[in-house]
Design a protein around this nucleic acid. Structure first.
Lengths: 196, 196
DNA sequence: GTCTATAGACGGATAGAC
DNA sequence: GTCTATCCGTCTATAGAC
């Protein structure tokens, strides 16, 4: 991405910037925006607090950087869409759980999810949900998207909150396949079943 | 509870204490624990910050006071249990939405729900969920409670988060009856349907 | 690029006058 | 019971030396 190393190193640091970002992701994911201080991030990363401001501007900028989607939801959900509406409930859930169960992706996703209730909240509400899940339903060729969308999301959010945020057992330790088998039919009904 | 008013007024204040508590409920419900300061609560209540510490001890004590359950879940769910497992999915959801749609009860419930992700978190996880919903399922005479419980809770939590916290439309403004009609069958399946 | 120093604001909590 | 005054800690953010 540097376009060839001829001109020497870019303004970014060797790896301090990455270290800060990694810690920020973990802390924001664990405690939310307000409860995490720039200083605590710097301390845990073993760097000076001023460096945090140096690389990322304000605390909010750091948060946004930590929040950057590690995956493109449209991309991973593309195969689901391509396969059509039959069995889409199971496939959507299996895909999402697969992403969340990835050790490298879970932390940024947790940070994102905390935004649902945090004061810094509107990212999920105004951005992620309608922008990502909405188009998926539309491309699936499902009718009455506006009525089905909140139902689908409600069940997905519920599973994510309990499995990854609250870590409620036995859901937290359950194999993804089992969750898919139990919850998938619900999503399928919301997607293609009759609406009241 | 004073045992007769002969001895004069109790240590509590005439209504200042209640005013503080009301504001605290609203603020904690809206912004969570970390983002709300004692001073801001006092200012909004029109009282001195020192009074907050006078009536309630620490900030955490104030939070716990604001969190006190406004309803006894076992009590409101008793009729649901008494009517047996048939149609229990719809009745459980209708009961819960009825409580949350009550203007007087919503704020404390919101404050409670924020605790799901807030640092002050374990109240919901260790307390509310297993203690309240668990016994309900047990008394309903449902088998394999441990496997059905997280499924039921996941769908309920998802609806509550989207309808009352994130306020995602059209779910937020939808009549409760419509939500019950759409989601109730899911709960019924989790309660009495086949498990994979 | 990294750090020290510090500004400037706000947080929780307490002591004590009235 | 209510308020003033204040201590002390922590926070974000910046300026500037090295």
């Amino acid at each position: 991405m540097t376009g060839g190393g001829r001109r020497g190193r870019r303004p970014g640091a060797p790896d301090t910037r990455a270290a800060i970002l990694a810690v920020a992701r973990e802390r924001f994911a664990a405690a939310g925006f307000a409860a995490v201080s720039v200083r605590s991030v710097a301390a845990e990363a073993g760097v000076d607090p001023a460096l945090v401001h140096h690389y990322f501007g304000s605390k909010r900028d750091l948060f946004l950087a930590a929040l950057e989607m590690p995956v493109d939801p449209r991309e991973v959900l593309a195969p689901v869409i391509a396969a059509g509406p039959e069995g889409a409930g199971e496939r959507i859930l299996a895909t999402i759980l697969g992403v969340w169960d990835d050790d490298e992706l879970r932390l940024p996703l947790l940070a994102l999810a905390r935004g649902l209730t945090d004061p810094s909240g509107h990212l999920l509400q105004d951005g992620f949900l309608p922008v990502v899940i909405g188009p998926v339903l539309a491309e699936l060729g499902v009718d009455q998207t506006e009525r089905r969308l909140p139902l689908v999301i409600s069940q997905i959010i519920g599973v994510l909150v309990l499995r990854y945020l609250a870590r409620l057992e036995p859901l937290a330790s359950m194999p993804a396949e089992e969750v898919v088998a139990a919850v998938g039919p619900t999503l399928q009904r919301y997607l293609t079943g009759p609406l009241p």
